[in-house]
Design a protein around this nucleic acid. Structure first.
Lengths: 101, 101
DNA sequence: TAGGAATATCGGGAAAACCCGATATATATT
DNA sequence: AATATATATCGGGTTTTCCCGATATTCCTA
């Protein structure tokens, strides 16, 4: 993964916010299981969008940015796309910075 | 320190390069002690500028960006400004990412 | 104190990011 | 097949970043 792209993805308030929300979905998205049958696959775009206050297109794009950077994983189920944090990648990034940077 | 500003500072190829060079000055700047009497204060702007191939103004600005983000420390001695990595801040950032992000 | 050398700041054109509304695509329902 | 819903993509105005040349500032030396 390109380091510059990784840092660019993180260099945005809204995207950092989203990443933080996804740490504890049940806390930040009280009804996130409701419309989405399965749990453990993450949070769907609509929930993130409504909480963020940004438009649907913007949130969709931002999630794509985070995914391209490897910071989140996407799972499409039916008409929903669920996003969850890629904890492995995030921890690896912490290591990378503390060592390689 | 603002996280967004921190990541913005890192979201640039040249600045990442400079940070990397400053990890081992004696390796990347063979003659970095020559024109600068004291060692251990870092590398002066001119050396970084010549190695980077960017203009003087650009490198000066980039170093200021890194400094504002807390990633490097600057020391002015005579007509030279020496820059060195802030290892403490960088390690702290690694921790921050692995935990808080 | 005049001139030179190192660095910082200023002004700006070009490129990228931001974030939107409109539209397209994919899936589910009837 | 037609409609509705969730998400993705497109086009674009606005802001920010990139990186430059020109100029200003700081410090040293003759």
């Amino acid at each position: 993964m390109d380091q510059v792209e990784l840092f660019k993805a993180l260099a945005n308030k809204a995207r950092l916010q989203i990443l933080n929300w996804l740490k504890e979905p049940e806390t930040h998205f009280p009804d996130y299981k409701a419309s989405c049958g399965d749990n453990s696959v993450g949070v769907c775009v609509g929930h993130i969008q409504r909480k963020s206050g940004l438009t649907q297109s913007t949130v969709s794009e931002y999630l794509a940015v985070l995914q391209r950077a490897g910071l989140v994983n996407a799972t499409r189920i039916g008409q929903w796309t669920y996003y969850q944090r890629n904890e492995t990648a995030i921890k690896a990034l912490g290591q990378l910075i503390a060592t390689t940077l």
